[in-house]
Nucleic acid binder design. Structure first.
Length: 467
RNA sequence: CGGGCCGUAGCGCAGUUUGGUAGCGCGCCUGCUUUGGGAGCAGGAGGUCGCGGGUUCAAAUCCCGCCGGCCCGACCA
């Protein structure tokens, strides 16, 4: 009997069971809220720290802005308030009485950050201004799902202001490539297709929106990162201007970009299999577990020695010496949690001077000498990371079909993604696809590169069902 | 907002038709034996049956009202 519902049988149920049995997260008392459990959070922390390094390398400084935003701020940018108002949570009572002005719990922080950028920016010397904050945000969702669509979730939101449109556009592209695409690909081992959003899918108040889309094992798309060029929309709404070198007052060009706990959902649905979660070594909270088969002195000594060697090499390693639980139970438990590598230490191997290495992704076992064990584990971790990405790329490419008609694209998008000339779709085609639950995830150039503008010629649309 | 389904132990459920001592599986606790892929045996703890009212000698069960949740649709992204 298997531990989980097989993916083929009921993918959503498999997902729920992984969340619960791998002790990742569960629902909070308020619909749409989530509790991230210690094991789940250990993975999030790794993802977070990797992305934070990349953001800093891209030049943005960390800041923190308040969660409560005066409602009036939202009214200043017409399209922004228009699209966000249905999903706002608003505080109207506090301190025992009705507030004079309602306070919006931030769904995103363009407005409040814009207000303060206005005060900080006077001259071209203050630009570019590049900020990033890690925060929680609240968007009232009708169909919440843990990690994928929460009423409250955690994310990073970057906000920048630039002197010229070209500089803003360049920075948006830099973030998309060096922070978003690179972290998803190299650290989460999730291959992504990046492109520009159609007008219909564009962020509220944006001039251009870009995204990185990942393909889940069920063939559906998940938007894993976005970056936006606002043009001067927010600069005008919040009066963010500067004195340029030519002595003229000009509005700045702003951008914003974000990655969220939704990536946890992507990680689960890209790498997980019928035996549970599979965590890429780079972002694993625990990369290696040394599992002691029995409660013997010799076993403990060797296990501790290997563990210490791994710790010296900065590997996140834990010892499993829960002897009150059977070996089989412990193995299954570590497997559901997706621990990348287990090192089994037992008397049978020790008699020959060996231990056993087990890879979670392939479930292959091989024997190592005690002396070389730590080094072998190090190289195996690298190999696992490489293989996870390669296999994810292969699974994705298998399900992408180049199409030459809308009918063909509709058919292909039932089980995977369809690529089709955007000219054959158009806004009319986009609306009709929506009736079948299909969306244009993004537009790319023919060679797969990211267009600078959604009006460019010869763009290719990627069509899919999406979370 | 419309249609359908469901609220019984931590979780999953049976019991409701036909009213009569609150059950099962998993999990949890104690002890012993086990431990190279979900261990076995023995003992044990745990429930205002969603809430309120009504009928009845007697209500998880029948009747009325309310609350909460899930699915489909609508709406939204």
């Amino acid at each position: 009997m298997s531990v989980l519902t097989p993916q083929d049988k009921d993918f959503p149920r498999w997902y729920q069971e992984v969340l619960s049995k791998a002790e990742l997260a569960e629902n909070g008392p308020v619909r749409g809220t989530m509790v991230i459990r210690p094991y789940g959070f250990s993975i999030w922390e790794q993802i977070q720290s990797r992305i934070d390094k990349r953001i800093k390398a891209a030049g943005a400084k960390s800041v923190y802005f308040p969660m409560l935003i005066p409602e009036s701020y939202f009214r200043r940018e017409a399209e922004h308030v228009d699209k966000f108002s249905p999903e706002l949570a608003v505080v109207t009572y506090a301190g025992g009485k009705k507030l004079e002005e309602p306070l919006v719990i931030r769904p995103t922080s363009e407005t409040i950050i814009g207000e303060h950028m206005r005060r900080w920016i006077q001259s071209y010397r203050d630009l570019p201004l590049m900020l990033n904050q890690w925060a929680n945000v609240v968007r009232w969702e009708l169909r919440p799902r843990v990690f994928l669509r929460n009423t409250e979730f955690l994310w990073q939101e970057g906000h920048t202001a630039h002197a010229t449109q070209a500089d803003a556009a360049d920075y948006t592209a830099t973030i998309l490539e060096t922070v978003q695409r690179d972290s998803l690909t190299n650290e989460l081992a999730i291959p992504v297709i990046c492109g520009i959003k159609t007008a219909k899918e564009r962020f509220a108040g944006a001039m251009n929106s870009f995204s990185c889309e990942g393909m889940m094992r069920d063939g559906k798309a998940l938007q894993l990162a976005t970056s936006h060029e606002f043009g001067q929309n927010f600069a005008k709404a919040f009066d963010i201007n500067f004195l340029d070198t030519d002595g003229k007052q000009k509005y700045v060009w702003t951008t914003s970009w974000g990655m969220s706990t939704r990536m946890m959902g992507g990680l689960i649905m890209v790498h997980g299999d019928d035996n549970g979660l599979v965590v890429p070594p780079v972002v694993a909270g625990t990369q290696v577990v040394v599992i002691l088969v029995s409660d013997d002195t010799g076993v403990k000594d060797v296990a501790n020695r290997i563990k210490d060697q791994l710790v010296e090499n900065d590997i996140r390693v834990e010892l499993d010496d829960r002897f009150d639980i059977s070996f089989g139970r412990r193995s299954v438990d570590l497997e559901i949690k997706g621990i990348p590598i287990r090192v089994e230490v037992g008397l049978r191997d020790l008699a020959e001077g060996l231990v056993t290495l087990v890879r979670r992704d392939t479930r292959e076992k091989r024997q190592l000498t005690i002396e070389a064990a730590a080094l072998d584990v190090l190289s195996e971790l690298t190999q696992v990371q490489t293989d996870l990405l390669r296999n994810a790329v292969a699974r994705r490419d298998e399900l992408i079909v180049d199409c030459t008609s809308l009918r063909e694209a509709r058919e292909a998008a039932r089980s995977g993604w369809a690529r089709i000339a955007w000219a054959l779709v158009g806004t009319g085609g986009e609306d009709s696809l929506a009736e079948d639950g299909l969306t244009v995830r993004c537009l790319q150039n023919m060679d797969g590169s990211v267009p600078a503008d959604s009006q460019d010629k010869d763009l290719v649309a990627v069509i899919a069902r999406a979370y």
